[in-house]
């Protein structure tokens, strides 16, 4: 099967520091992959660089066998929740509708059908009751669900999520993971920048372990071992153990 995503020799820097160093991997369709690594490992930067939101120093990225600009409609991106101003005067439905702007067309107004699609997406995340609620009044978990609904409404084939479970309540975490599993069951591919080592084995069938370069990548059961964890987190984890253990 054709890989959904191919990354070869990707290099990127953030200010003076090299953040991605010769990153190479391939993602098969229908997988649910966690991207993990210590802080500053380049996880967010990896997503942003692949999506051309961050400049690339070298390397090649292919989505569905072609360049990003030809595959934009097939890729859904859920950025970190902290990347926007939630004080902006708009409601949840409006935010989800933004996912459809590409389809609505520039300079045209959203139609009834678009609103229905948006409402449906909110419903999938259990948020249809909050459609008209101001986003500034939503909790962290609710905001995250709205973001995810916005990605869903794009009906993409590959979803890239940046720390969707950070700072959300247990119910939201459950709802999000359920949605991601549903997507996988439907043949979609999902990659998630994930922060919690404890839940990797429960949630994800594949894992990409990143510390500026790819330490390991493959099925969770095979490659998520003490050894690879130690190599990815280096002194970081050992320091943590000393404190807690």
């Amino acid at each position: 099967m054709e890989p959904v995503l191919q990354v070869r020799g990707l290099h990127a820097a953030y200010r003076k520091n090299k953040v991605l160093d010769d990153v190479t991997f391939e993602v098969a369709p229908g997988t649910l992959t966690a991207i993990i690594g210590p802080n500053g490992a380049g996880k967010s930067t990896l997503l942003k660089t692949m999506l051309e939101l961050h400049p690339r120093l070298a390397g090649e990225v292919r989505f569905f066998g072609t360049a990003y600009r030809n595959a934009k409609l097939k890729v859904g991106y859920v950025p970190q929740r902290g990347s926007v101003d939630w004080d902006f005067p708009t409601d949840a439905l409006d935010v989800v509708l933004m996912g459809l702007y590409g389809r609505i067309g520039w300079l045209k107004r959203p139609g009834r059908r678009h609103r229905e699609l948006a409402l449906e997406a909110l419903g999938k995340m259990g948020m249809e009751g909050f459609a008209k609620r101001q986003i500034s009044e939503l909790s962290g978990g609710q905001q995250q669900r709205v973001f995810l609904a916005r990605a869903l409404v794009q009906d993409a084939d590959l979803y890239l999520l940046d720390e969707p479970l950070a700072g959300v309540d247990a119910a939201t975490e459950r709802a999000i993971m359920e949605m991601l599993r549903t997507l996988r069951a439907a043949g979609k591919t999902v990659m998630v920048v994930h922060h919690d080592l404890q839940t990797v084995e429960d949630y994800f069938d594949h894992v990409l372990m990143l510390n500026r370069t790819v330490i390991a990548h493959g099925p969770t059961t095979e490659i998520f071992t003490q050894d690879t964890i130690a190599r990815t987190y280096g002194g970081w984890l050992r320091r943590k153990e000393r404190v807690t253990g």
């Binding site: 999506l51 939101l53 934009k72 991106y77 950025p79 990347s83 926007v84 101003d85 902006f88 708009t90 409006d94 935010v95 509708l97 933004m98 996912g99 702007y101 590409g102 609505i104 520039w106 300079l107 107004r109 959203p110 916005r150 794009q154």
Partner: peptide, 22 residues
């Protein structure tokens, strides 16, 4: 008036906007 929704998106989430081609 003409580009009302584009302004909304651009002001709220410019990264996402770029992502969908704005």
């Amino acid at each position: 008036l003409i580009s009302f929704k584009e302004w909304k998106l651009y002001l709220f989430d410019p990264a996402f906007a770029r992502g969908i081609g704005l």
